[in-house]
Protein backbone atom coordinates (compact mmCIF):
# COMPACT_ATOMS: atom_id res chain seq x y z
CA UNK A 1 0.00 0.00 0.00
CA UNK A 2 1.53 3.29 -1.04
CA UNK A 3 1.90 6.12 1.48
CA UNK A 4 1.96 8.93 -1.07
CA UNK A 5 -0.06 8.78 -4.21
CA UNK A 6 -0.12 11.60 -6.74
CA UNK A 7 -2.54 11.60 -9.66
CA UNK A 8 -2.73 13.90 -12.66
CA UNK A 9 -0.94 16.74 -10.86
CA UNK A 10 -0.47 19.93 -12.88
CA UNK A 11 0.09 23.67 -12.55
CA UNK A 12 0.53 26.60 -14.92
CA UNK A 13 2.28 29.93 -14.32
CA UNK A 14 0.96 32.75 -16.45
CA UNK A 15 -0.39 30.33 -19.05
CA UNK A 16 2.81 28.27 -19.24
CA UNK A 17 2.29 24.64 -18.25
CA UNK A 18 5.05 24.02 -15.72
CA UNK A 19 3.89 20.56 -14.71
CA UNK A 20 1.23 18.55 -16.49
CA UNK A 21 -0.55 15.36 -15.55
CA UNK A 22 2.14 13.77 -13.39
CA UNK A 23 1.34 10.71 -11.29
CA UNK A 24 3.51 8.68 -8.95
CA UNK A 25 3.37 6.63 -5.75
CA UNK A 26 5.79 6.07 -2.89
CA UNK A 27 5.50 3.26 -0.34
CA UNK A 28 7.11 3.16 3.12
CA UNK A 29 10.78 2.23 2.86
CA UNK A 30 10.90 3.06 -0.85
CA UNK A 31 13.22 5.60 -2.44
CA UNK A 32 11.56 7.13 -5.47
CA UNK A 33 13.69 9.56 -7.47
CA UNK A 34 12.51 12.23 -9.84
CA UNK A 35 15.03 13.10 -12.52
CA UNK A 36 14.98 15.27 -15.58
CA UNK A 37 16.84 18.10 -17.25
CA UNK A 38 16.91 21.63 -15.84
CA UNK A 39 13.50 23.24 -15.94
CA UNK A 40 11.71 19.91 -16.17
CA UNK A 41 9.44 20.87 -13.26
CA UNK A 42 10.92 18.76 -10.48
CA UNK A 43 11.01 21.42 -7.80
CA UNK A 44 7.59 22.70 -8.85
CA UNK A 45 6.25 19.18 -8.39
CA UNK A 46 7.81 19.11 -4.92
CA UNK A 47 6.27 22.46 -4.08
CA UNK A 48 2.83 21.17 -5.03
CA UNK A 49 3.13 17.95 -3.08
CA UNK A 50 4.39 19.78 0.02
CA UNK A 51 1.64 22.40 -0.06
CA UNK A 52 3.79 25.37 -1.03
CA UNK A 53 1.99 25.78 -4.36
CA UNK A 54 -1.69 25.10 -4.89
CA UNK A 55 -1.94 22.61 -7.77
CA UNK A 56 -4.06 23.64 -10.74
CA UNK A 57 -5.15 20.06 -11.39
CA UNK A 58 -4.87 16.60 -9.89
CA UNK A 59 -4.85 15.00 -6.47
CA UNK A 60 -2.29 14.36 -3.74
CA UNK A 61 -3.16 11.60 -1.27
CA UNK A 62 -1.24 10.85 1.89
CA UNK A 63 -2.07 7.52 3.47
CA UNK A 64 -5.36 7.56 1.59
CA UNK A 65 -6.37 11.05 2.76
CA UNK A 66 -6.82 13.75 0.14
CA UNK A 67 -4.31 16.44 1.11
CA UNK A 68 -4.26 18.42 -2.15
CA UNK A 69 -3.26 22.03 -1.46
CA UNK A 70 -3.20 21.50 2.31
CA UNK A 71 -1.04 23.99 4.23
CA UNK A 72 2.51 22.75 4.85
CA UNK A 73 2.23 22.85 8.64
CA UNK A 74 -0.81 20.59 8.50
CA UNK A 75 1.04 18.23 6.17
CA UNK A 76 3.92 18.15 8.64
CA UNK A 77 1.42 17.05 11.28
CA UNK A 78 0.45 14.18 8.97
CA UNK A 79 4.04 13.08 8.58
CA UNK A 80 5.26 14.89 5.46
CA UNK A 81 8.48 16.88 5.66
CA UNK A 82 10.95 18.20 3.13
CA UNK A 83 14.24 19.89 2.42
CA UNK A 84 14.83 22.70 -0.06
CA UNK A 85 16.91 22.99 -3.18
CA UNK A 86 17.78 26.59 -2.38
CA UNK A 87 18.51 26.32 1.32
CA UNK A 88 15.88 27.45 3.78
CA UNK A 89 17.65 27.46 7.11
CA UNK A 90 17.24 29.82 10.04
CA UNK A 91 20.54 31.68 9.72
CA UNK A 92 20.47 33.62 13.00
CA UNK A 93 19.93 30.52 15.13
CA UNK A 94 22.50 27.99 16.23
CA UNK A 95 22.84 24.72 14.35
CA UNK A 96 21.42 22.89 17.35
CA UNK A 97 18.41 25.22 17.55
CA UNK A 98 17.81 24.82 13.82
CA UNK A 99 17.52 21.09 14.23
CA UNK A 100 15.47 21.48 17.41
CA UNK A 101 12.76 23.41 15.55
CA UNK A 102 11.96 20.11 13.90
CA UNK A 103 10.61 18.90 17.23
CA UNK A 104 8.03 21.68 17.24
CA UNK A 105 5.06 19.37 16.81
CA UNK A 106 6.09 17.05 19.59
CA UNK A 107 7.76 19.43 22.03
CA UNK A 108 5.77 22.64 21.92
CA UNK A 109 3.16 23.29 24.54
CA UNK A 110 1.33 26.05 26.33
CA UNK A 111 2.61 29.55 25.66
CA UNK A 112 2.21 30.53 29.31
CA UNK A 113 4.37 27.63 30.43
CA UNK A 114 7.07 28.81 28.04
CA UNK A 115 6.92 32.41 29.25
CA UNK A 116 7.16 31.37 32.89
CA UNK A 117 9.73 28.63 32.28
CA UNK A 118 7.56 26.13 34.12
CA UNK A 119 9.25 22.75 34.70
CA UNK A 120 7.17 21.20 31.93
CA UNK A 121 8.34 23.79 29.42
CA UNK A 122 11.96 23.37 30.42
CA UNK A 123 11.63 19.60 30.10
CA UNK A 124 10.11 19.88 26.63
CA UNK A 125 12.82 22.27 25.54
CA UNK A 126 15.57 20.09 26.92
CA UNK A 127 13.98 17.07 25.21
CA UNK A 128 14.00 18.85 21.87
CA UNK A 129 17.62 19.91 22.25
CA UNK A 130 18.73 16.41 23.25
CA UNK A 131 16.86 14.91 20.31
CA UNK A 132 18.38 17.52 18.01
CA UNK A 133 21.86 16.66 19.27
CA UNK A 134 21.29 12.98 18.42
CA UNK A 135 20.11 13.88 14.93
CA UNK A 136 23.08 16.18 14.36
CA UNK A 137 25.33 13.26 15.26
CA UNK A 138 23.46 11.15 12.73
CA UNK A 139 24.15 13.63 9.91
CA UNK A 140 27.69 14.28 11.14
CA UNK A 141 27.18 17.82 12.40
CA UNK A 142 27.44 17.25 16.14
CA UNK A 143 30.65 19.19 16.41
CA UNK A 144 29.11 22.26 14.78
CA UNK A 145 26.08 22.22 17.12
CA UNK A 146 26.74 25.53 18.86
CA UNK A 147 27.82 27.52 15.80
CA UNK A 148 25.52 30.02 14.14
CA UNK A 149 23.90 28.22 11.21
CA UNK A 150 24.70 31.05 8.81
CA UNK A 151 28.41 30.27 9.15
CA UNK A 152 28.21 26.69 7.84
CA UNK A 153 29.21 25.47 4.38
CA UNK A 154 26.62 24.66 1.74
CA UNK A 155 27.02 20.91 2.05
CA UNK A 156 26.78 21.05 5.85
CA UNK A 157 23.58 23.10 5.61
CA UNK A 158 22.08 20.48 3.28
CA UNK A 159 22.64 17.92 6.00
CA UNK A 160 21.30 20.29 8.64
CA UNK A 161 18.08 20.51 6.65
CA UNK A 162 17.86 16.73 6.62
CA UNK A 163 18.38 16.59 10.39
CA UNK A 164 15.67 19.19 10.88
CA UNK A 165 13.29 17.29 8.63
CA UNK A 166 14.04 14.03 10.43
CA UNK A 167 13.22 15.70 13.75
CA UNK A 168 9.59 15.97 12.65
CA UNK A 169 9.50 12.15 12.64
CA UNK A 170 8.33 12.06 9.04
CA UNK A 171 6.65 9.13 7.34
CA UNK A 172 7.33 10.73 3.98
CA UNK A 173 10.41 12.83 3.31
CA UNK A 174 10.93 14.97 0.20
CA UNK A 175 14.61 15.64 -0.44
CA UNK A 176 15.38 18.34 -3.02
CA UNK A 177 18.95 17.84 -4.28
CA UNK A 178 20.47 16.76 -0.97
CA UNK A 179 23.87 16.13 -2.55
CA UNK A 180 24.17 19.41 -4.46
CA UNK A 181 27.37 21.20 -3.58
CA UNK A 182 28.79 18.20 -1.73
CA UNK A 183 32.18 16.65 -2.42
CA UNK A 184 32.61 12.92 -3.06
CA UNK A 185 33.02 12.01 0.60
CA UNK A 186 30.02 14.05 1.67
CA UNK A 187 27.94 12.58 -1.15
CA UNK A 188 28.73 9.12 0.07
CA UNK A 189 27.66 10.09 3.58
CA UNK A 190 24.38 11.41 2.23
CA UNK A 191 23.95 8.23 0.21
CA UNK A 192 24.27 6.18 3.42
CA UNK A 193 22.02 8.56 5.31
CA UNK A 194 19.21 8.27 2.76
CA UNK A 195 19.49 4.50 2.56
CA UNK A 196 19.41 4.32 6.37
CA UNK A 197 16.29 6.48 6.54
CA UNK A 198 14.54 4.30 3.98
CA UNK A 199 15.50 1.20 5.92
CA UNK A 200 13.87 2.64 9.01
CA UNK A 201 10.61 2.71 7.03
CA UNK A 202 10.47 6.33 5.85
CA UNK A 203 9.12 6.78 2.34
CA UNK A 204 11.54 8.97 0.39
CA UNK A 205 10.91 11.10 -2.65
CA UNK A 206 14.15 12.43 -4.05
CA UNK A 207 15.17 15.04 -6.61
CA UNK A 208 18.84 14.70 -7.41
CA UNK A 209 21.20 15.49 -10.25
CA UNK A 210 23.98 13.17 -9.17
CA UNK A 211 23.08 10.24 -11.43
CA UNK A 212 25.44 7.81 -9.78
CA UNK A 213 23.74 8.45 -6.46
CA UNK A 214 20.29 8.14 -8.00
CA UNK A 215 21.07 4.88 -9.80
CA UNK A 216 22.61 3.38 -6.71
CA UNK A 217 19.91 4.00 -4.13
CA UNK A 218 16.59 4.40 -5.96
CA UNK A 219 13.96 1.69 -5.91
CA UNK A 220 11.98 3.51 -8.58
CA UNK A 221 12.72 6.42 -10.91
CA UNK A 222 10.32 8.89 -12.53
CA UNK A 223 11.64 10.94 -15.46
CA UNK A 224 10.22 14.41 -16.14
CA UNK A 225 10.77 16.53 -19.21
CA UNK A 226 9.02 19.81 -19.95
CA UNK A 227 6.74 19.17 -17.00
CA UNK A 228 5.53 15.78 -18.20
CA UNK A 229 6.38 12.26 -17.17
CA UNK A 230 8.24 10.67 -20.05
CA UNK A 231 9.34 7.43 -18.41
CA UNK A 232 9.49 5.52 -15.16
CA UNK A 233 10.74 2.23 -13.80
CA UNK A 234 13.64 0.73 -11.90
CA UNK A 235 17.08 2.27 -12.41
CA UNK A 236 18.18 -0.30 -14.99
CA UNK A 237 15.07 0.13 -17.14
CA UNK A 238 15.12 3.90 -17.02
CA UNK A 239 18.78 4.21 -17.89
CA UNK A 240 18.19 2.20 -21.09
CA UNK A 241 15.07 4.12 -22.11
CA UNK A 242 15.73 5.93 -25.43
CA UNK A 243 13.39 8.84 -24.55
CA UNK A 244 15.36 9.47 -21.38
CA UNK A 245 18.66 9.43 -23.21
CA UNK A 246 17.25 11.82 -25.78
CA UNK A 247 15.94 14.19 -23.14
CA UNK A 248 19.31 14.32 -21.49
CA UNK A 249 21.32 14.84 -24.68
CA UNK A 250 22.77 18.30 -24.61
CA UNK A 251 21.83 18.75 -21.01
CA UNK A 252 24.80 17.99 -18.79
CA UNK A 253 23.48 15.59 -16.21
CA UNK A 254 25.42 16.73 -13.19
CA UNK A 255 24.78 20.45 -13.39
CA UNK A 256 22.59 21.82 -10.63
CA UNK A 257 19.29 23.33 -11.62
CA UNK A 258 19.82 27.03 -12.18
CA UNK A 259 16.75 28.98 -11.20
CA UNK A 260 14.61 28.39 -8.17
CA UNK A 261 11.03 27.38 -8.83
CA UNK A 262 12.22 26.73 -12.33
CA UNK A 263 8.80 25.72 -13.67
Amino acid sequence: MSLLSVEGLGIAFGGVRAVHDVGLTVAPGEIVSIIGPNGAGKTTLFNMISGVYLPGAGRVRLDGEDVTGMAPHLLARRGLSRTFQNLQIFPAMSVLENAATGFHLRESGALMADLLALPGARRRSAGALAGARDLLARVGLDRAADREAGELSYGALKRLEIARALATAPRLLLLDEPAAGCNAVETEEIDRLIAGMAQSGIAILLVEHDMKLVMRISTHIVVLDHGEKIAEGDPATVSRNPDVIAAYLGAPVAEPEAAHADG
Binding site: S50, G51, V52, A71, P72, H73, L75, A76, R77, S81, R82, F84, Q88, I89, F90, P91, A92, M93, E97, N98, A100, T101, G102, F103, H104, L105, E107, S108, G109, L111, D114, L115, L116, A117, A121, R124, S125, A128, E161, R164, A165, A167, T168
Partner: peptide, 25 residues
Protein backbone atom coordinates in the same frame (compact mmCIF):
# COMPACT_ATOMS: atom_id res chain seq x y z
CA UNK B 1 12.37 32.38 29.08
CA UNK B 2 10.38 32.66 25.89
CA UNK B 3 13.46 33.07 23.74
CA UNK B 4 14.93 29.75 24.88
CA UNK B 5 11.61 27.88 24.84
CA UNK B 6 10.10 25.82 22.02
CA UNK B 7 7.72 28.69 21.25
CA UNK B 8 10.62 31.14 21.12
CA UNK B 9 12.51 28.87 18.76
CA UNK B 10 9.46 28.62 16.56
CA UNK B 11 9.13 32.43 16.49
CA UNK B 12 12.76 32.91 15.57
CA UNK B 13 12.41 30.15 12.98
CA UNK B 14 9.53 31.85 11.18
CA UNK B 15 11.62 35.04 11.26
CA UNK B 16 14.39 33.17 9.42
CA UNK B 17 12.25 31.39 6.84
CA UNK B 18 8.49 31.15 6.89
CA UNK B 19 8.43 28.37 4.33
CA UNK B 20 10.85 26.21 6.27
CA UNK B 21 9.04 26.97 9.53
CA UNK B 22 5.82 25.66 7.97
CA UNK B 23 7.43 22.45 6.82
CA UNK B 24 8.46 21.56 10.37
CA UNK B 25 4.84 21.99 11.41
Amino acid sequence: NLQASPTGRALRALHGSEVAARTVG
